[in-house]
């Protein structure tokens, strides 16, 4: 697994890391809860046939500036700048969980600036009868198993790499959780249902079969609301962060959809 190239864009005066790897048509990636503390096998799968461009959202590993953003409008404007500045306007874009929510927002508000969209269990809805799990109220031992079907995958993903700063690394991981909380606390409800009907792009809705965060029923709600053609697909053996649990299957589903 070779390293991606790193470039930096400026968002509200804060640096924001953009990782790029591969060749072929561009595909954007906004990562899920926790961001990208490291490059992942899933992205390598995509990079085999596509130029993968993965910018970080504010407050997620590689970027700061989340605490300048007070309203949901602030966040959407920041996400748009990130997408535009990393050269993803008019391209295929995929995103998972937290990132998936912003991909959906972008596709709704600037419907002619995306080609095709793939969303893995995106956040933004809350149904009282089928509530999403509170990822911020988990006993420390429970959290990995809530996010991934295989808890060890999450633990490895977040483990301090050799040579990293042992103080700053854990702080960055908490910051990513905080950045998500800043947008989505306490219910994860951004009222995205009001905007989903504006999405015109063909949209793939992917769900880990063992997602313990976002109920599967939300996929149906989203498919019903999105104006563009939608396809729902579930990934066996995957939890909420399907791209971490099942990199190959998840990448294959996206690439097939976007071919």
């Amino acid at each position: 697994m070779s390293e991606p190239t790193t470039t930096t864009i400026d968002i509200n005066g804060h640096p924001c890391r953009v990782w790029t790897k591969g060749s072929g048509p561009k595909i954007g990636w906004l990562a899920g809860f926790g961001g990208l503390p490291r490059w992942t096998p899933f992205l390598d799968e995509l990079a085999k046939t596509r130029t993968v461009i993965a910018p970080s959202l504010p407050g997620h590993p590689g970027a700061t500036g989340h605490n300048l953003l007070d309203s949901h409008l602030d966040w959407i404007v920041a996400a748009r700048q990130i997408i535009v500045k990393s050269g993803l306007e008019g391209e295929d874009i995929a995103g998972s969980s937290v990132g998936g929510s912003f991909v959906a927002e972008f596709a709704a508000l600037w419907p002619h600036k995306v080609k095709r969209v793939a969303l893995i269990a995106p956040w933004g809805l809350f149904d009282e009868k089928d509530p999403a799990t509170d990822v911020w109220a988990q006993r420390p031992d429970d959290q990995p198993g809530v996010l991934c079907a295989d808890p060890q995958i999450w633990k490895d993903f977040k483990a301090v790499p050799a040579g990293a700063n042992s103080v700053e690394w854990p702080i960055e991981q908490i910051r990513a959780s905080e950045a998500a909380a800043r947008v989505f606390w306490p219910l994860g409800n951004t009222k995205i249902e009001k905007r989903l009907p504006l999405i015109l792009a063909p949209t793939l809705l992917l769900w880990g079969e063992q997602d313990r965060v976002m109920p599967r029923s939300y996929a149906d709600t989203m498919a019903r609301l999105i104006e563009g053609k939608t396809t729902i697909k579930t990934i066996p053996g995957a939890g909420h962060l399907a791209d971490l649990d099942q990199p190959a299957a998840t990448a294959r589903a996206i690439l097939e959809f976007m071919s």
Binding site: F126, E128, P131, D134, A137, P186, L187, N189
Partner: peptide, 11 residues
């Protein structure tokens, strides 16, 4: 209970 209102959201 979780309250999922237009103006108030509390888990």
């Amino acid at each position: 209970f979780a309250f999922n209102g237009r103006f108030n959201q509390q888990r």
